[in-house]
Design a binder for these strands. Sequence first.
DNA 1: TAATAAACGCAACATTGTTGCATCTGATTA
DNA 2: TAATCAGATGCAACAATGTTGCGTTTATTA
Lengths: 124, 124
Amino acid sequence: MKATPVRLKVLEVLSTTHLALSPSELESSFSKVDRITLYRTLKDFEEAGMIHKIIDTDGVTRFAFCNNNCPDATHTEDHVHFNCKKCHKMFCLAHVQTPSLQLPDGFTSTGINTVVHGICKYCS
Amino acid sequence: MKATPVRLKVLEVLSTTHLALSPSELESSFSKVDRITLYRTLKDFEEAGMIHKIIDTDGVTRFAFCNNNCPDATHTEDHVHFNCKKCHKMFCLAHVQTPSLQLPDGFTSTGINTVVHGICKYCS
DNA sequence: TAATAAACGCAACATTGTTGCATCTGATTA
DNA sequence: TAATCAGATGCAACAATGTTGCGTTTATTA
């Protein structure tokens, strides 16, 4: 994978925020980036395990960098995210453990996606 | 809210399945229903608290009827759903309790959306 | 049965995401 | 440093999903 300007910029933005950002949010955070290129960049990063995709409470697709705080280097989706009702930002709560659940017979879990919604630290 | 054929059909389908269905799945389950009418019907039902919206692991919007099994009559989103990787169906696990989480200081929760993914009872 | 407010269905549009293809560019090698 | 070429980019075109406006139809109710 080549180190191109678009890729470096996306990595820089995602690695310096604790938020999960949508493609359109990323697009508007730097000018003159082709929408299609951005989608492809995010897809490549995701497949390379550098970022992960989360769908927020409203169905918006968002991407988050998994930084060193992340307790799980294998980037499973057992992360807890917090979606603020007011500012609509999506926070990656890396320190919050995903709880274990008791599933009905016959169901096998390979990952749990938890999205807490409410009011964030900065809006309350 | 009037009792129209479309509404009765949607209610019938949603109330007799344990799955959360997408608008397009509903559309194809009965013929000659206008797509727009279906969207409006689902929106009305959701606002009336009769069904609730869940976004699945792939970002697909789905709707589920909350039947009598549902432990919470107020229809908060503290439901646990199970998204099968194989058949892509979304099961409403009404009997599984949403676990409580320890949030960082300043964050207040008003609901938790949990989507477990894995292999369902019928695919394993 | 007549009146009417609500629901329906069509056209048109907006957003999000994907694919094909020609062009450009960053890393490698000579 | 210059040539090379796989890989990255950007444009056009398309597909899926969801919304709005508006004229017509229909379920209630009187």
